[in-house]
Amino acid sequence: MRHSLRETWSGLRRNLAMTIAVIVTTSVSLTLFGFGLLTSQEVDLVKARWYDKIEISVFLCTERTTGGTCEEGKPTTDAQREAIKSALEANPEVQEVFYESKAEAFAEFQRVFKDSPILASRTEEQMQDSFRIKLVNPENYQGVVSEAQGLQGIQNVQDLRGVLDPVFSTLNALKWGTIGMSLLLLLAAALQISTTIRMAAFTRRREIGIMRLVGASNFYILLPFLLESLIAALIGVLIAGGALVATYFLVVDRTARAALPALPWVGPSHILLTVGVIAAVGILLSIIPTLLATRKYLRI
């Protein structure tokens, strides 16, 4: 064991430049990969909260509303309300229609902006009754939107998808961009580790030959190389994990959560999961190329 540790240490020192290169590549690629994972979890969180719940909101008229098919100063009548409801329900694209009253809307508003100064800016009277429509196929929202816009007593038809789509496409681009870039870098890191270990094994090929000859086990021969790449990868994981945790506290916890309280944000459990995943990736990233690179020297 002492022999293995000594060999590992001398290997790390001998290849110091390459080891540093491996650590840098590994940490940068794993950090990016972690960002990609966090972005992806954030997108899922936001989607779960907003996107899948509400499809189309049909806001009804009140005394003060203008625009749409509202009559000046008159709220939507009960007859209009019934007509809207049955018209929407008759549409084959519509799966379900919910009715949300002013009071319910205000309660949701209070819940969402609980700790925010925005809370005081509205009263229940300013809220509107609305129909919330769930579609059979959320992609085909245009027909329902234009039908609703033609009905009497409707102030505004809001398709939340239209609002959120650009946000999500930006987030998705960010997610795939970081994951894609990180995969390229991870590939580079794997090749770098494999080259480093191949070089180290070549430098020590005489020792390896003799070890095999006198009956050292493969594990014993492999151990210094495994430890060498594992140590480099683990340092990379530590750096990447530190970067992710720091980003979380500085950007999400301190800034974003306060600025956009309406959105759900990734929390410590997501960070933990992400760090766990990059640690696993980092370990595999070091072990697999090492095993492949030394295979030639260990064939009995």
């Binding site: 095999r212 000859l213 006198v214 009956g215 493969n218």
Partner: peptide
């Protein structure tokens, strides 16, 4: 395969070119 090292521990080998470190 994994018993080969145990076999080789029972065999000593010497070469023309010594193969010392």
């Amino acid at each position: 395969q994994w018993k080969v090292p145990a076999l080789r521990r029972q065999i000593g080998t010497v070469f023309q070119d010594f193969r010392l470190l």
